[in-house]
């Protein structure tokens, strides 16, 4: 066990291609235990590709280490290590009930038993609105509720590391703020979080550091305390 670095996640030289297009070029990234960091960047920059490559949904070359150990390149096996992804567009199973979605989140422990009940009550405390809708079809809920379900489902796996790909997509500012506040709370209670966002100001409020991805490259690492104005941020994007 080499927790010597104190990093829960280390990405080195991660490169991903879609045919001729190189969507991610030799990305390096570190995430410390208990940290919440953001990945920023314009549309099409390669943020989603980075997340998908980390969890093994997109085939990529390079190393990804989780608590010092190399991660397999197979999404199901990565999930088994305790890494949960809230995918872009939520990935909710619309025809299934909210409860079934949550059960699937706890797929690794078969969605029942004491452990399951403990996780469920934790998620329902975090998102009380889901409690009233347990038997409702997930697809019939509002966008905000679906995003809560997506986060709740990921938490059902009791992950060590939570990855979120643009959770604010298509949501009202108020709902986004609510969800990001919940993430901050989770982080304060010790969960390591990697958050991809286009809406940088929102993300920077809760993140301790941020990486900026442009054209498939991680171009900059920012300390959020340095950022004081919107203009400053724009410089990082377009330098």
């Amino acid at each position: 066990m080499s927790i010597t670095t104190g990093n829960i996640l280390e990405v080195r030289g991660l490169t991903a291609r879609y045919g001729e297009v190189t969507a991610l070029r030799s990305a390096d990234l570190d995430l410390k235990e208990g940290e919440l960091i953001a990945v920023l960047g314009p549309n099409g920059a390669g943020k989603s590709t980075l997340m998908r490559s980390i969890v093994g949904l997109t085939s990529a070359s390079g190393d990804v280490r989780f608590r010092g150990e190399l991660l397999p390149r197979n999404a199901a096996a990565v999930a088994a290590r305790g890494i949960a992804l809230v995918p872009e567009g939520r990935g909710i199973f619309g025809p299934m009930s909210v409860e079934e979605n949550l059960q699937l989140g706890a797929y690794m422990i078969n969605g029942r038993g004491e452990d399951y009940e403990r996780r469920l009550s934790r998620v329902l405390t975090l998102f009380p609105r889901l409690k009233e809708r347990l038997s409702q079809a997930a697809g019939s809920m509002s966008g905000g509720e679906q995003q809560m379900l997506a986060v709740g489902r990921a938490l059902m796996a009791d992950p060590k590391l939570l990855l979120l790909d643009e959770p604010s997509l298509g949501l009202a500012p108020k709902v986004t703020a609510e969800i990001l506040e919940t993430l901050a709370e989770l982080n304060r209670s010790g969960l390591s979080v990697l958050l991809v966002e286009q809406k940088a100001p929102l993300a920077l409020k809760i993140a301790s550091r941020a990486y900026v991805v442009v054209n498939g490259r991680i171009s900059t690492e920012i300390d959020t305390k340095e950022i004081t104005s919107h203009d400053q941020l724009a410089r990082y994007y377009f330098q």
């Binding site: 093994g56 990935g91 969605g111 489902r153």
Partner: peptide, 23 residues
């Protein structure tokens, strides 16, 4: 659990994989 996993992968294979399902 198996049935839920089937319905999940029919919705999105990637989302199912990310939950640990061997699609």
């Amino acid at each position: 659990r198996f049935g839920r996993a089937l319905v999940a992968l029919s919705g999105s294979e990637d989302a199912a994989r990310a939950l640990g399902i061997n699609v």
